[in-house]
Computed example of a mutant assay.
Amino acid sequence: MIQFALNHMTVARMSFRDLVALAKQLGCVGIEVRNDLPQPLFDGMEPAAGGALVRENGLRLLAVAEVKRFNDWSSDREAEALALIRIARAAGAEAVSLIPRNDNLGMGNGERQANLRVALKALKPMLEDHDLVGMVEPLGFETCALRYKAETVEGIEAVGGRGRFKLVHDTFHHTLAHGGPLFPDHTGIVHVSGVVDQQVGISEMRDPHRVLVTPGDRLGNLDQITALQAAGWVGPVSFEAFSAEVHALADPASALRSSMDHIANVHA
């Protein structure tokens, strides 16, 4: 049985309260909230109150996103990370999301790995102090300085960060990075979205192409989930669709239920 979750990006026009209500309605195990949407985190509620609302509805606050460009470490980045970590801790979240730089800089072999280790080494005690996990999400874009899960895991192991840092296995980014090995023991959460546009090449796929997972999906979501589960991974599968078409759905609950059924039927 798959543990489904809902990332706020999928229903970006919804309020935090409506996100919670929808996740409960759909039988999700939890939600992920974001600081890159037009509305404030928790609809402007205090983090502790926002987290309490999540738990009162039988849900987990899986992650607060995101620390951007975390592998471009600086004093400003440290301050941003600490601020988000404190919000996550106050809300009773399980993790904060760490998103790498995606500007075609810091791309050199050796440079990438060194920058990653600097950031992870600095973040590790901050996360330990607040009893949080850092969810690291490699982005499959060719302009990203952290494309590959293997490189990410090497960095985590190098700083003694196993368990304190976990991978986000994003099915979209896994495809864009041309697959590669799975790391079930390091994976904390899976992000799912689908691409149904038949014209766009894999290297040209971008966030606006990301819709819900349907039978027309080109990303191999079902195969990826099956492979992770076969390797022993157990955890939440969270919908993260960026498409404006999905954001504009009049009845997102029905569309999400249909997608959940499509995924679950294969993994029954």
Rank of each mutant, 00 (worst) to 15 (best):
221 N>W: 08
216 G>Q: 08
141 F>M: 00
144 C>Y: 02
75 S>M: 14
250 A>R: 05
129 D>F: 08
115 N>M: 15
192 V>S: 05
101 R>A: 15
95 A>N: 11
125 P>Q: 00
134 G>T: 03
189 I>H: 13
181 P>G: 00
165 F>T: 05
32 E>R: 01
246 V>N: 04
250 A>C: 05
120 L>D: 00
158 A>T: 11
221 N>A: 10
39 Q>G: 08
138 P>G: 04
110 G>T: 07
234 V>N: 14
156 I>Q: 02
72 D>Q: 12
173 H>K: 12
204 E>W: 06
263 I>K: 04
243 S>G: 10
257 R>A: 15
102 N>K: 10
18 D>S: 10
68 K>G: 14
12 A>R: 12
1 M>W: 01
38 P>F: 15
126 M>L: 06
209 H>P: 07
101 R>K: 13
121 K>E: 02
191 H>A: 02
193 S>T: 03
198 Q>L: 05
177 A>Y: 00
257 R>Y: 12
69 R>A: 02
13 R>F: 09
154 E>H: 03
110 G>F: 07
163 G>T: 13
25 Q>A: 15
220 G>H: 04
15 S>A: 12
159 V>K: 10
256 L>V: 07
69 R>E: 00
249 L>F: 10
73 W>E: 01
184 P>M: 09
106 G>E: 00
2 I>Y: 04
107 M>D: 08
90 A>E: 14
119 A>W: 03
219 L>K: 03
42 F>V: 15
173 H>G: 01
109 N>D: 15
47 P>L: 09
100 P>N: 01
254 S>Q: 15
113 Q>N: 07
23 A>M: 13
125 P>H: 00
5 A>I: 01
155 G>S: 14
218 R>F: 07
8 H>N: 07
206 R>M: 09
72 D>M: 08
223 D>M: 10
53 L>R: 00
223 D>R: 07
121 K>F: 04
215 P>W: 13
67 V>K: 06
19 L>E: 07
174 H>K: 00
45 M>W: 14
239 F>T: 03
43 D>K: 05
156 I>S: 03
218 R>C: 04
72 D>H: 11
260 M>P: 08
122 A>R: 08
178 H>K: 05
53 L>A: 06
95 A>K: 06
126 M>G: 00
266 V>T: 14
110 G>M: 06
131 D>G: 03
266 V>M: 13
168 V>G: 10
220 G>P: 03
87 I>G: 12
188 G>M: 01
196 V>D: 11
144 C>W: 03
117 R>V: 03
